[in-house]
Amino acid sequence: MSDIERRSRVESLLRQLDAVDAMPGSAELRELSYELLRLPAGAGVVDVGCGGGRAVAELAGRGARAIGVDLGEEMIEVARHRWPEADFRLGDACALPLEDGSVAGYRADKLFHQLADPLKALAEARRVLVPGGRVVLVGQDWDTLVIDSDDPALTRALVHARADLVPAPRVARRHRNLLLDAGFEEVHVEVRTGVFTDAAMLPVLTDLAGSVRAAGGIDAGQEEAWVAEQRRRAGAGRMFLAVPFFVAAATRP
């Protein structure tokens, strides 16, 4: 991938993340994740897969010593530009640039579905957490996206085919068991569903169809017809996308 293509991909991802962050309910979901961390005043917390850095800035604003870690150099550059006073570090979720027992909180939002080995990442979370530290995971189950369409059969096929392109598409439903397998205690799970009807989310749907077509799951005609319908819906204020977000929290013994 060329530098231009890579930058374009990062900019597209940031636009999508910013659109999700701005939607009704998104701020409340982030606030829930912060509350579940139960951070003492001035405690250290790491946001893994920090993206553009919004959560790091918000956690710092709550008095935490917040650190953002992301694998993408471009993402870290964007985060540092947006929040120059914050602490952002390049690093892998399975090899965090942190000392043992150096933070009281670990947060990962919309990350674990991208990981080839989620359990290894949780072992790393346990390493960097102090005893009694808290881990909070937020993520969607890619097989449970709900999209209104005049062609439900094609839409079902698209959702499942898109899920199959993700390294761990159903990891969110496994959060509880993964946390238990990693030795965490007091595991708590809840679900908050985001309902999106704004045209700002149209790129998410067009990207879904484009990704499946590029992988050979549908042909160009099917993609064109499905995307055209979603554009018409968005233009008429009739688009509907529901995404269940699974929130899991636990304590390091």
Results as ranks from 00 to 15, higher is better:
L178I: 06
A172S: 12
G210C: 00
E185A: 14
A199E: 13
E190D: 10
F184E: 04
H188T: 10
H175I: 01
A168S: 15
L180Y: 09
R173M: 09
T144F: 13
A200G: 08
A153Y: 10
L205N: 12
L205Y: 10
V187W: 08
E190M: 08
L208D: 09
L208M: 10
V187F: 04
R176G: 11
D141H: 15
T206I: 01
L179H: 03
D207K: 05
L165Q: 11
S149G: 04
I147F: 13
V171M: 06
A163G: 15
R174H: 13
D207G: 14
L202F: 15
P203S: 05
D181T: 08
E185V: 04
P203G: 08
V159T: 05
R174Y: 12
R156V: 05
A199Y: 11
L208C: 03
R162L: 08
A157Q: 12
F196C: 07
R192F: 09
L208N: 05
L158T: 07
R170G: 14
T197E: 10
V195M: 09
L154E: 06
R176W: 11
P167V: 02
L145Y: 15
W142T: 03
A168V: 00
T155C: 03
V187L: 01
R192M: 05
R170V: 02
L154K: 07
P203E: 05
W142M: 10
D143S: 11
V187R: 03
G183R: 00
P167I: 04
E190L: 14
F184N: 07
D164V: 00
V159D: 03
D150I: 00
D207F: 03
R173T: 13
P203I: 01
E190A: 07
G194M: 11
L202Q: 13
V191Q: 12
T144M: 05
D143L: 15
W142Y: 15
G210I: 00
D143E: 12
G183A: 02
R174F: 11
